[in-house]
């Protein structure tokens, strides 16, 4: 004799599996977008490093040449 709860629970399990699949797809999409954003932001990060380094070298150069004028 089949328990009535078993069928209900199997239905619930199928529903849960479906929800998990959808959630997995959503998370995958989210990850893809985040990855793309990170790839785009990597350029910005590189540029920030470049600019920071340039500023540092420039400041050091100005200090060494005694031509660094304080901001007015």
């Amino acid at each position: 004799m089949e328990s009535p709860h078993e069928s209900q629970q199997s239905l619930l399990l199928a529903r849960i599996i479906g929800n998990v699949e959808k959630l997995n797809e959503a998370v995958k999409e989210f990850n893809n977008r985040i990855r793309e954003i990170n790839a785009a932001n990597l350029e910005a990060e590189l540029f920030s490093h470049m600019w920071q380094n340039y500023q540092s070298y420039l400041e050091m150069n100005l200090e060494e040449t005694n031509s660094l004028v304080p901001p007015k």
Partner: peptide, 17 residues
């Protein structure tokens, strides 16, 4: 209670999605 727990799980997953 098992059924309710599974419902809760299902609800949580759907909410996450």
């Amino acid at each position: 209670s098992i059924t309710l727990t599974m419902q809760e799980i299902d609800r949580n997953f759907s909410q996450c999605h």
